[in-house]
Design a protein around this nucleic acid. Structure first.
Length: 190
DNA sequence: AGCACGATCTGA
DNA sequence: CAGATCGTGCTA
C-alpha cells in the first residue's frame, strides 16, 4: 500500500505539512499520469489561525475543510487561479495543507503544454502547479485515498535537516502571531 | 444588490 | 510595480 491513506492526514496539521515534503503527488488526466515530488507546503490550522479560510466559520467555499481528512480542498482566487490543499485532522476541525510546489517526476511535456511554458519554474508556485496538473474546482472535495484522479504516494524520505520552516506567503492580513508563525516548509536546494 | 479584495503570476 | 479577472463574503 503506497498510496497515503486517511490515517496519514489525521495527525496535527503542522506534522502532516512536514510529512508531505518528499511525497509524490499523482494526477491522472486524459489517460496520462502526471506526478511530482512535493517540495513546499504551508499549514493552515483551523479556526484559531487568522490566516486560515475557516477562521470566520464555515461557508459554502470552505466547507470541505470541515469534512473528514484525506480530501482535496481546491478553491479559486485572484479571479484566475486555483490552489490545492489537503484536508487534515478530525472532521469539524477545519485544517488543511496548501501544496505550494512540486518537482516534476513524470509527464513533464504534458505539464509544459498545459502551462504553455517551460523551465524549472514550471511547477513552483501553488497556482502554477494547479495549471500544470490540470487541477480545478471539479476536484474540490475529492477523496485522496481512492487511487483515482488525484492522490499522494510515499516517495522519498527527506532528512529533517533539509527542511526549512519559514513564515507563510501572502497572508499580510493575518494577526502578527500567525504572520510570524513558521508554518511553511521548504526543501533546501538539493 | 453592491462592493472590496484575495493562501498569485506575469511582464514591464 | 501594476494589471489581469471573478467568486466569495461582508455590509446594507
Amino acid at each position: 500500500m503506497i498510496i497515503l491513506n486517511k490515517t496519514f492526514y489525521e495527525p496535527g496539521t503542522l506534522k502532516v505539512a512536514r510529512a508531505l515534503i518528499g511525497k509524490k503527488l499523482v494526477r491522472q488526466i486524459g489517460g496520462l499520469e502526471l506526478s511530482g515530488m512535493i517540495i513546499e507546503t504551508e499549514a493552515y490550522c483551523g479556526k484559531e489561525d487568522s490566516a486560515c479560510h475557516a477562521h470566520r466559520g464555515k461557508t459554502k467555499r470552505n466547507s470541505v475543510m470541515f469534512g473528514p481528512p484525506g480530501h482535496a480542498y481546491v478553491y479559486f482566487t485572484y479571479g484566475m487561479h486555483y490552489l490545492l490543499n489537503m484536508v487534515t485532522e478530525a472532521e469539524d476541525k477545519p485544517c488543511a495543507v496548501l501544496i505550494r510546489a512540486i518537482l516534476p517526476i513524470a509527464g513533464l511535456e504534458e505539464m509544459e503544454a498545459r502551462r504553455k511554458r517551460k523551465g524549472p519554474e514550471l511547477t513552483k508556485g501553488p497556482a502554477k502547479l494547479c495549471q500544470a496538473l490540470g487541477i480545478d474546482k471539479s476536484l474540490n472535495g475529492w477523496n485522496l485515498t481512492s487511487g483515482d484522479q488525484l492522490w499522494v504516494e510515499d516517495y522519498k524520505n527527506i532528512p529533517a535537516k533539509l527542511i526549512t520552516a519559514t513564515p507563510r506567503i501572502g497572508i499580510d492580513y493575518a494577526k502578527e502571531q500567525h504572520r510570524k508563525a513558521l508554518w511553511r516548509f521548504v526543501v533546501k536546494a538539493e
